[in-house]
Amino acid sequence: MKNLLCFGDSNTFGTNPAKPGTRHPFDVRWTGRLTTLLGPQWRVIEEGMGGRTTVFDNPLEPQRAGIQALPIVLQSQRPLDCAIVSLGTNDLKEIFHASPRTIAAAAEQVCAAIRDYPYGGCGPAPRILLVSPIAVKPGISRSPYVGFEEDAVERSQRLAPFYREVAERNGWMFLDASTVAEASDLDKLHMGPESHARLAEAIADIIRSEFAD
């Protein structure tokens, strides 16, 4: 059995835009659908957290920096054959003033930490799939989830090229999630069931191709 880590934020956790504060059922969120699509030869490990950033500390939402959580996650979940990193949306919050290029560089740090972790006898390092997040929608400043201003919309739409460049330079797999999924009109931030399904299918195609041998 191969082990696949899904490391992300609330859209990996599966926050339900129809009921703020709740979570889609396992068979609805993309991680659960991916489990079904890949079959019994894969163990899909969910590691999503609402508010999680790449590397930034948010005093309004403490202990959410992904780079700080990674050592514990990697130590407890090794060995890993593949790791999916889907972060960056929360880096768009007003408090960080981060450009798309900066956010992509921060995502690169997270992926590099996975690549360079000392797995010891549970090595080698996993293959990495970097996922550029879906765009947030206009009206995000009025979302139930505070911290976003309207300029986050335009910046979120410019993330993918920077993420792609990072992935290609490092030899990592890449997916622009916005090409297959979108935020719900309900909260402008989180995916509904249809987008979870499409994202799972796109990721499954990449994983099958990468591990075809």
Rank of each mutant, 00 (worst) to 15 (best):
D81G: 04
H97F: 06
I114T: 01
Q68L: 15
L70Y: 04
R101C: 10
R43H: 11
R29G: 01
V166Q: 01
P25C: 06
R142D: 01
A112C: 09
G171W: 07
A98P: 00
I95L: 15
F174C: 08
P193F: 05
N90D: 05
A106W: 05
L38F: 10
G50W: 09
G50Y: 04
L159A: 06
T179W: 02
H97Y: 02
L189I: 13
A204M: 05
K2I: 10
V153N: 03
I203S: 00
D185M: 14
Y119F: 14
T36C: 05
N58P: 05
Y119T: 07
Q157H: 09
H196V: 07
I203D: 00
D185A: 15
D91S: 13
P126K: 10
N3V: 05
A183Q: 07
R43K: 12
P59H: 11
G139K: 12
E150G: 08
I207V: 15
E150S: 08
N90C: 04
E165P: 01
P124Q: 11
L159E: 03
T12V: 15
L4S: 01
L5R: 07
A18D: 04
P118K: 14
M49T: 08
E61W: 15
Q77K: 15
G192P: 00
H24I: 02
D57A: 15
L5Q: 03
G50H: 10
E61N: 14
I206T: 08
V44C: 09
D91T: 14
I103R: 11
R158G: 00
Q41C: 08
R127D: 00
I134D: 01
P144G: 13
F162I: 05
S132R: 06
P124H: 10
Y117I: 07
A200C: 06
N16K: 11
L80S: 03
S86M: 14
A197C: 06
C122Q: 12
N170G: 05
Q75F: 02
L4P: 00
E47K: 14
L186V: 10
Q109A: 09
R78D: 00
L4Q: 02
T179H: 08
S156H: 06
I45L: 15
Q77E: 11
P79M: 13
T179Y: 02
K137D: 00
C6T: 05
D27A: 14
S10H: 09
S86W: 13
S10Y: 06
R64L: 04
T31P: 02
A202E: 06
I128P: 01
L80Y: 03
E108D: 10
D116A: 14
L5C: 02
Y145E: 01
G39L: 12
I207Q: 03
I95S: 05
G171H: 06
L186I: 15
C111K: 05
R33A: 05
I114E: 00
A104P: 03
I206W: 04
D187A: 12
T53A: 09
E182H: 13
L60C: 07
E194C: 11
P100F: 09
D185G: 08
I67V: 14
G51P: 03
G21A: 11
T36K: 13
I84F: 02
H196Q: 04
I103E: 01
E149W: 11
L37F: 07
R33C: 03
T53L: 12
